[in-house]
Write a protein that binds this DNA or RNA. Structure first.
Ligand code: MN
Ligand code: MN
Ligand code: ZN
Ligand code: ZN
Lengths: 141, 141
DNA sequence: GTATGGAATTGGAATAATTCTTGATATCGG
DNA sequence: CCGATATCAAGAATTATTCCAATTCCATAC
């Protein structure tokens, strides 16, 4: 007779946007929210194993994909590297610090318009924008 | 006693930016310049085999990489798809037509400034920008 | 023209991220 | 509790790309 363990992440609802938030999905979502450092799937896997030692890589990929498809997190790609995952749902840009490898979120200024920047042909419907920057931060950021 | 074949691509110099332009590199560069449709490595391979039947996939990858490293062409990545290759060296943006899958180059407006658009911290040095759009063109483009 | 050393090419094996398959578990509604 | 359905786990499979070793090419020197 084993009593049910308390939910380790009570702040995460049991369902988001129609997606049942299982123990594994909650843990993975929590991991992304904790540091927001854009980890790869295998970094998520290593962190998840600490609380859920029996979790598998396949489950990490499954969960990340489910969260992405339900627009609870975003998948971020840079060049040909492993995908990274980001829980920031605001429209934003990714800045890769070429010195440290860290990835930082950068917001748009309010009221930005893409056609102020680009010579877009008349009538195009832009459904998605992805902007990535690479560069250096001023020292000791 | 075989007389040397005429160069099929005399418009391409025998050396660009310190890179010796071999038969294979010329052919691949020519393929990219011909339609500028951002082919993948295996699309380039299929086209290259018509003129150079003995070329290998490894050579196509080698040549593309050499051309990219010498900044003669650019490598373009979209999500997790195969890399595509682009001979347009102007600073530009890639628009993916979600109806046809075609990729179009879009130029910046003259005098654009990224910090008019983004809340970048003071003193960052942006070394590289990559912008990808996905959307629909007005019908019959 | 021929020799030679380095660069380039080739074909196949290796790699690595991700996806697929299949069977076991867990959860939900009744 | 029972059956239906969703999820998870483990390992195999896939696919784009890179690596490796052997051959071929080519520019220059003789
Ligand atoms: Mn928590
Ligand atoms: Mn030509
Ligand atoms: Zn982000
Ligand atoms: Zn382009």
């Amino acid at each position: 007779m084993v009593s049910k363990q308390p939910d380790p992440h009570p702040e995460i609802p049991d369902e988001i946007d129609g997606l049942r938030m299982t123990k594994q999905r909650k843990e993975i979502y929590h991991i992304l929210m904790e540091y927001r450092d854009h980890p790869t799937a295998s970094e998520v896997y290593m962190r998840a194993k600490e609380r859920l030692p029996s979790i598998s890589q396949a489950t990490v990929y499954n969960c990340l994909q489910a969260l992405v498809q339900h627009q609870i997190i975003r998948q971020v790609n840079f060049e040909r590297e492993s995908s990274r995952y980001c829980p920031n749902l605001r429209e934003h840009v990714h800045f890769h610090d070429s010195a440290t490898g860290a990835i930082h979120d950068v917001d748009f200024k309010p009221g930005f318009q893409l056609n102020e920047l680009l010579q877009l042909p008349e009538g195009v419907q832009v459904e998605d924008i992805e902007i990535t920057l690479r560069g250096k931060l001023p020292q000791s950021s």
